[in-house]
Amino acid sequence: MIQFLINTLPFLWQGLLVTLAVSGLVVASSLVSGVLFGVGLVYGRWWIAWPIRVYSDILRGTPLIVLIFLIIYGLPLVGIDFGNYASAVIALAAFKTAHVAEIARGAIQSIHFGQTDAGKAIGLTFRQRLQYVIMPQAVRRFLPPWINAVADAVKGSALVSLAGIVDLTLATQQVIGRTYDPLPMYLLAAAMYFAINYSLSMASRRLESRFAYVRE
C-alpha cells in the first residue's frame, strides 16, 4: 500500500504544481483587481461604482462552474477562444475579484469617517489619506477574510479539472481510473490540499500579528 502511494506521487506532484499555479494566478490577479474595485466601490463616482456593483452582484450570484463553462463554451460562439487553461483561470479570477472587492469595501468602510475628516483637516490629499491613514488600518481588517478567500480559491481551483486541466483533482482521478482503488487516493489528495491550506492559514496568522500594531 505504501509502495503504491509512493509510486503515484510523481503523478500527483504534477497535478499539485498545476493547482498551485492556477491558485497563484487567481489569487494575485484577483488581489490587484479586487482592491481596485473595492476602492472604486467606496470612493468612485456613480459611473465607476455602479458598474462595479452590478459586476460584483452578478458574479457573486453565479455558480462558479456555470461561469467556467460560460467562458469556455460561450465565448467561442462569438469568436473568442482563450483556450481551456486561460479560460478557467479567467473565470476563477473574475469570480474571486468580486469577492475580494467586497472584502476590500468592507475593510475600508469599517474605518470610521472621522479618520478621513482628520486627514482632510491636516491637509492630506486623497492619495495621502488612503496611503497613510485609511489603508494601514483597513489592511488589518482585510487580511483575515481575504486569507479565507484565498483558501477558498485553492479549493475552488479543483473545478478546472472539469475543463480537462490536469490539476491535483484530475491527477487523482486519473490514478483512480487506472487502479480502481479510490480511497487511498482521495485521502492522499485531501492531505495535499490540507497541507496547502494549513500553511496558508499559518502564514495568515503571522501576517495578522505582523499588522496588528502600528509601526512608529
Binding site: 509510486n7 510523481p10 490536469v166 486519473q174 483512480i176 487506472r178
Partner: peptide, 15 residues
C-alpha cells in the same frame, strides 16, 4: 477524450 477510465482512456504507469 478522457484520462480517468481504464481500459478506455487512462494513463499507464509511465504517465
Amino acid at each position: 477524450t478522457g484520462s480517468t477510465n481504464a481500459p478506455w482512456h487512462f494513463e499507464n504507469d509511465k504517465g
